[in-house]
Amino acid sequence: MKKLTILPQLLLAFTFALTGFAAQAQEVKGNAAAGSSKSWLCVGCHSIPEYRADYPLVYKVPMLGGQNAAYIASSLAAYKKGERKHPTMRAIAGSLSEQDMADLGEYYAAQTASSPNNPLK
């Protein structure tokens, strides 16, 4: 008798597990052209040579051009979740969707020293 009551619960758990795997398989693909129109959020700090942010601590702001697309998207996601701590970056990342993050990652990954779209990167 007990086996009959457990079986529906196991089937339900299995269904939820499969649904979770399917959701993970639908990874967002970035688009560099779409990222170009969203990069205005970044250029104010990240494209100024030798720029140093002074809040909360003074540190050099990294250039984004040529960085790995997945690294940029995962960094933005970490700021959005609060895993990385910088108030300005957290606010900006909080306004971005997963698609926006992937697009920005692809845009900056495509930048080279000779890229005409954003020569300062």
Rank of each mutant, 00 (worst) to 15 (best):
M1L: 12
K3A: 03
L4W: 06
T5I: 15
L7G: 03
L7T: 06
L12F: 04
L12V: 00
F16N: 01
L18H: 15
F21H: 01
A22Y: 12
A23I: 10
Q24V: 13
A25S: 08
G30T: 00
A32K: 15
G35S: 03
S37Q: 08
S39M: 06
S39L: 10
C42Q: 01
V43N: 08
H46G: 00
S47V: 06
P49V: 05
Y51S: 06
Y51A: 08
Y51P: 00
A53M: 05
D54I: 07
D54Q: 07
Y55P: 08
Y55G: 10
Y55T: 11
L57G: 13
K60A: 15
V61E: 07
P62I: 14
M63I: 09
L64E: 03
G65H: 01
G66I: 03
Q67Y: 14
N68R: 01
Y71H: 08
Y71I: 02
Y71E: 06
I72Y: 06
A73Q: 06
A73K: 10
S74Q: 12
L76M: 03
A77S: 04
Y79K: 04
K80N: 09
K80P: 06
K80R: 08
K81P: 02
K81Q: 10
G82P: 00
G82W: 10
E83V: 01
R84Y: 10
R84P: 00
K85Y: 15
K85Q: 09
P87R: 05
P87C: 07
T88N: 08
M89P: 00
R90S: 11
G94Y: 02
L96H: 13
L96E: 08
S97V: 13
S97R: 12
E98W: 07
E98S: 07
D100I: 05
D100H: 15
M101T: 04
L104D: 07
Y108P: 00
A109C: 04
T112S: 09
S114G: 12
P116K: 09
N118E: 09
P119G: 13
P119Q: 11
P119D: 13
K121A: 05
